[in-house]
Nucleic acid binder design. Sequence first.
DNA 1: GTTATATTTGAATAATGATTCATTAATCAG
DNA 2: CTGATTAATGAATCATTATTCAAATATAAC
Lengths: 199, 199
Amino acid sequence: MRTKSGNKDRDIANAAIKVFARDGFHGARITRIAEEAGVATGSVYLYFKNKESILHHLFFEIWQRIRDQFMGVVSRTDITPREKLEELVDRIFALFSRNPSLALVFVNEQHHLVREGTAEFMKYYEDFLKLTEDVIRDGVKKGQFRKDVDARVFSNFVFGGMRQLLQHWARSQKEFPLNSIRQGIRIIAIQGILKTPTT
Amino acid sequence: MRTKSGNKDRDIANAAIKVFARDGFHGARITRIAEEAGVATGSVYLYFKNKESILHHLFFEIWQRIRDQFMGVVSRTDITPREKLEELVDRIFALFSRNPSLALVFVNEQHHLVREGTAEFMKYYEDFLKLTEDVIRDGVKKGQFRKDVDARVFSNFVFGGMRQLLQHWARSQKEFPLNSIRQGIRIIAIQGILKTPTT
DNA sequence: GTTATATTTGAATAATGATTCATTAATCAG
DNA sequence: CTGATTAATGAATCATTATTCAAATATAAC
């Protein structure tokens, strides 16, 4: 008998993150990923069915983690909808804050998988959207948020805005420090841009 | 002598929009684009250097139009920064409102070109961001917008949010009617989500 | 140390699809 | 009408790479 040594699946996944981030999914070469992971080209296929399944795997992990985090936050009863919203934003940033490459893959490559509509992670993605919308609706019901805010539009808008900023941050942490982005989103999404004493 | 008949370049560009939108840039087949345009495969190469240059061409046109629209709006002196902001959002939506496929290409395929950094349209894109930031800064200076709003973060956030909503709209006009999106963005970006009489 | 079994290798394969180019078809000038 | 010139065609080419698999290697059991 012989047992697999090390964590080649993780090595390959991590290598793929780097290469996908730098070259994009279609520009990424399997040989390059293998090299980066320190394994032979063929070994990649012992751990993943094909190139696309590596991307699937990454998105599955990401969305599962996001969904889990969101479940935890949304179910809390000790904080207001507004605080939940802020917490949710923070959790997303926390997820990527140590891994700009993962952030780039996340913001850039999802539509390759969504196109087919069959992706396993889609259920987590949908949960994510629903959970966010629930927080908004709850806030409206509790009278904390404006009645004329459309929960679905709002969720998507904020998610899109975060994606865009996450991308800038990932490309240049210096120019877009995570803290100012987080702060910016809080101000904009929660309080809007108009000058008005609201806090 | 023989002169080129019709507008094959436009036909090809329009065909490419449809095919890129449906199959994505990398999934798009030149033969399919030619077919859709009603020309032979080889003819595509009489009008465009290669597949990528078709995409370049599309983005050049889009960003040039956006930039021009923005120039016009920003230079006006008869409306407030807030009104300018609303107008800018409307102009973007107006640009795509008759062409969901173009919207999909716009939101999904830009990063293929940005990666190389050499794209001709980038200067228009940068103008676009700068013009938006100028409106914000002007609004802050005039006391209409909050002092603690970061113009750069705000511009990117709103742009990202619009992209995300544009994508949903393009995929299903029914579920995300353009008007409710536009209205939603006004409320969120300008007034924020908090319940507070501000108008 | 030997054998059995599972893992790893990386060069060879095979498929794909962008691009080319020799050929054909239109149009125009005279 | 004829020849000259340019546009258009689409099958053949060629390059690129994901994927495969026969061979090599490592580990474990005895």
